[in-house]
Each structure stands twice: as C-alpha cells, then as structure tokens.
Nucleic acid binder design. Structure first.
Lengths: 114, 114
DNA sequence: AAAACATATGAATAGGTATTCATATAAGGA
DNA sequence: TCCTTATATGAATACCTATTCATATGTTTT
C-alpha cells in the first residue's frame, strides 16, 4: 500500500492530485447533492416546478404532516433552493433558482439511460 | 390544513399532482443523488476523471484507509458509476459512464453561481 | 380579547450510513 | 509451499438525519 508507484507513474499521481479541488469545495459539492438525496425534498421541489404552493397544500399533496414538510422546507430555504412570501396567514414557497430544475432534470436523464 | 382549496385552485392542485412522477421514480432519483452526497465518494469520482486508479493509489491520494475506500468503491460499483479491471494483484477502477462527469460538473456550476 | 388557522420549531426517537477493526480471499514471488 | 501484497468484507461503533409530538409564533376573524 505504501508503494503505489509500482502501479501508477508518480507524475500521473501528482497531476491527479493537483486537479482535485480543495476539501472545502468538495464538501460543499457533497452538501449540495445531499439536498436532493431525500425523497421528500425531491418531491417538494418537483411540486414547485409547476407553481408556488403553501405549506398545507404541499403536505396534503404528499400525504405528510405539516410539521415534516415545514422542517424540510427550512432545509431547502437555508440552502437557498426555495424562497417564500407571506400572504396573510399563508406562506407560499417557490423555487428560488432555475438551476434547481436543471439539476433534477439532469438526474432524471441519468436514470433513463440506466 | 384540510381546506387548502381556499389558497390554491383545485384544478391547479390536480395538475401539480399529476405531473409528479411515481414514488418509485422519485425514490430512484433521490438514491442517485445520494451517491454524490458523500465527500469521500465525490473525491473518488473526481480522481477518476483523470485516469483509472488502483485502490491503494486512491487511498493514498485521499489519506484514507484501504478498507474505507474499498467500501465506498463497492457502493459506486453496485450503482454502476464505476467499473474495474484486474491486473495481477491490482484492481483498477474507472468511471463506467461519462454521465457521472456531467452530473458532478453541473453540481459544480450550481456552486459557482451561489 | 378570544378563538381559529397557518406555520415554525425544539426535543426525542428511530433508522440509516461511513469508518474502523479484524479477517478473508486472491494473486505473485521466494 | 510459505510469505507478501492487494483487495474485499462482515460486524461493531459513532454520527447524522427524517419524522413525530408538543408547543410556540404570528395572522385573521368574530
């Protein structure tokens, strides 16, 4: 294990290592993907493709409790994937960024290609 | 909570719900993103952008144990994101699919746009 | 002001998972 | 055949996280 130069040229290893982004960037990247790595969050984002929705509508559409949805919306909002606006008692959530849509659709394409 | 029609037209809710893929598909989608939701796995995939690498080279480049890397490689292989070939005692891993690269790069773009 | 409604949130719990440790498998060299 | 090297893997542990439950906050209505 201490002698990989036998199997890979040292310069290759040096180059491969240099191309690797910093730990911080790679951690941010994993964090971003983790946002989409939960069925409930993906469902919420998918629903918001069509239109803004209030918390209770999302909960009803997904057959989940208001609390569970609120917790997930908070995570999505903290990550700036969604934003909200208040209208009286009701709070409407919507996609904050069109990039969200393209991320999900790209994942979808990968699935279709198997 | 039981009366969301006050806030959203019923037909809108029906349409939004109809556009939603099946639970199975959305679960697969979340599972796909989960593969990229770990720093170690992202690092491994990134390293393989440049060239195929043996297990010990990956472990050394990332400063992690061979066992930890092997476990993660198994997950990536089971998901068909990487494949491998044997050369004597050494086993070389490589990206199974160019889609992997585009998925990660898309995530990267999202990060840059903040 | 009180009641009802929509949402947010903290604490607890249950389920998932990444790493470690010990060990197994498999190939090559002495 | 025995030893070394490269990799794989099962079990255990420690950490993370999604949901639930109870409750708090904020708004409207009566």
């Amino acid at each position: 294990m201490e002698n990989c130069e036998k199997h890979s040229h040292e310069e290759l290893l040096r180059r491969v290592k240099n191309e690797l982004p910093t730990d911080e960037v790679l951690c941010d990247l994993a964090d971003l993907f983790r946002l989409f790595a939960d069925t409930t969050r993906v469902k919420i984002l998918y629903l918001l493709f069509e239109s803004e929705l209030c918390v209770c509508a999302i909960a009803e559409l997904l057959g989940m409790t208001q609390s569970a949805i609120s917790h997930q919306l908070r995570i999505l909002k903290d990550a700036n994937l969604v934003a909200n606006r208040r209208d009286g008692k009701t709070i409407y959530y919507f996609l904050a960024d069109d990039h969200v849509r393209s991320m999900i659709l790209q994942g979808f394409e990968h699935l279709l290609e198997d």
